[in-house]
Nucleic acid binder design. Structure first.
Lengths: 144, 144
DNA sequence: GTGAATGCAAACTCTTTGCATGACT
DNA sequence: AGTCATGCAAAGAGTTTGCATTCAC
């Protein structure tokens, strides 16, 4: 994820944005996440690490990163938006939510990507992103 | 969609819920929708038809219908939740959003469904629903 | 008649915005 | 020095909840 952090900081700089403490901290912390996080989770993580950042600055940073396509927004119907680093390579994964415990996990699937690309080709829209959200029960919640 | 309306009313009755005016109106109106709608759109439609229903009752009706699996909730990252009738047959479609005008359209794709089922089989989760949201530019917005 | 369904208003949560202060170039 | 970035507090939007009233059974 280090690669993403540097790529993001460089892209922000190239786009003419100043390097403030709040935004840089958000970028560095986001780059260390394993999967998608909410703005609040990010704020909590920062607080625990003693790098408290105002919630408004977090939202502003995430918004800007989204505009620059450096983060991907994911709304999985939980009532909160989740954010995760968007790899410059286009490499990505999708998510699965547990109805029991709310856990979010990720998966990748070649065949699914192929099906989506083929589908995009036959639609008369120009498609530039996609999200596949599965819902179900995780192994832990399924165990009796 | 008439079939869905009757199915929903019957299911509610069978589950022991009383038939109040607000909920019945929501069910009948929802059954006439072509695609997913928001609670506010539903409220506006009802008002135009002179069947005003309190917004709280609309949310409560949609919530109950969701629990009974009679409606499908879709959160496509617009900041609002959309709802649409869930066919008892399991027949369904997915959605594509236009970044330009916000339009939501629907599509069906056999190959995509196959890929998702195959994927679900190989995950150690029990998967019971899925959503595929595409984002892009609609033909109208793409035209210069 | 009893308890569920409804509607209003208030509460709540997440997110955005206005504005004064502080920081980067 | 001149802007842009930040943080606080307040505003906004969507959704949920408390409570008294009305309605279905």
């Amino acid at each position: 994820m280090i690669a993403w952090t540097e790529h993001a900081l460089r892209t922000l700089d190239a786009a003419g944005y100043r390097s403030g403490a709040a935004r840089a901290t958000v970028v560095r912390t986001l780059g260390r996440q394993h999967c998608c996080v909410t703005a609040r989770e990010l704020a909590d993580t920062l607080r625990e690490e003693g790098e408290e950042v105002g919630i408004a600055s977090i939202y502003r940073a995430l918004d800007l990163l989204g505009e620059l396509r450096l983060v991907h927004r994911l709304d999985a119907g939980e009532g909160v938006v989740r954010y995760e680093p968007a790899m410059p390579t286009g490499e990505h994964h999708h998510h699965i939510l547990c109805d029991g415990c709310g856990r979010v996990a990720s998966y990748e699937d070649e065949r699914l990507e192929h099906a989506i690309h083929a589908l995009a080709d036959r639609l008369s829209w120009s498609v530039d992103s996609h999200d596949v959200v599965l819902r179900g029960t995780c192994p832990a919640c399924a165990a009796p």
